[in-house]
């Protein structure tokens, strides 16, 4: 389609070069569309743009606890539609000093007759606070298997970064539980194996 020889008009010979450059731009912009995905994630990690917490283990707090103020941390649990598990926090909210490490248990039960695997997805409001919520241990890092009819308490250990801005008095952490049985990783399935 870049064949221009058939054109009867006299023209400069560098059409091919311009076309090649433009096509390269097109390809780059298509790739850029996809690159927006990781870029967006990086941007969110830096700014707390979408309220997603860092889904990896944070280092334990080494800094002094700021006892001069407390932050109210609220917990909300939800299950996605089609997800029959019961899922609730042991306490609705805790008051913590920035830097103080707390453990909160989340209770889950699988009322069905089949073994299932779940994944919890966190979201924090205000989004900015997600930057300062550090989890040193959390069930949300991994898929959670639960045998038919079983109950479990899943711990989450966290502390708030002492740098958390003064204006944040309340922080809400929401977990939505999704059914991942169909997409379970082999090692998670293996954990349920002895039961069968």
């Amino acid at each position: 389609m870049t064949d221009t020889n058939s054109n009867p008009a006299p023209q400069r010979p560098d059409n091919g070069r311009v076309v090649r450059r433009l096509l390269l731009t097109v390809v780059c912009m298509f790739a850029f569309g996809y690159a927006l995905v990781p870029l967006y994630e990086v941007f969110c990690d830096i700014t707390g743009f979408n309220g997603r917490t860092k889904n990896e283990q944070a280092a334990a707090n080494t800094r002094a606890v700021d006892t001069s103020r407390t932050v109210n941390v609220q917990f909300i649990t939800r299950t996605n539609s089609g997800m029959p598990w019961g899922f609730a926090p042991e306490v609705k909210s805790v008051r913590v000093h920035p830097g103080e490490t707390k453990v909160v248990n989340f209770l889950a039960n699988n009322p069905t007759g089949g073994n299932m695997v779940a994944q919890a997805i966190p979201s924090v409001a205000p989004g900015e606070a997600a930057l300062y919520l550090n989890k040193t241990e959390c069930f949300c890092f991994n898929q959670q298997p639960l045998k038919a009819g079983a109950k479990t308490a899943m711990p989450m250990q966290f502390y708030l970064d002492p740098d958390i801005p003064e204006h944040i008095h309340t922080l809400t952490l929401s977990y939505t539980l999704y059914d991942m049985t169909a997409n379970a990783t082999p090692d998670v399935l293996a954990q349920m194996q002895p039961a069968n």
Binding site: T25, V26, V27, M29, F30, F32, Y34, L36, V37
Partner: peptide, 14 residues
């Protein structure tokens, strides 16, 4: 057009 139509193509592909 050259800059943004490919991005639309990416979005619909996703």
């Amino acid at each position: 057009l050259i800059a943004v139509m490919p991005v639309l193509a990416g979005a619909v592909t996703m």
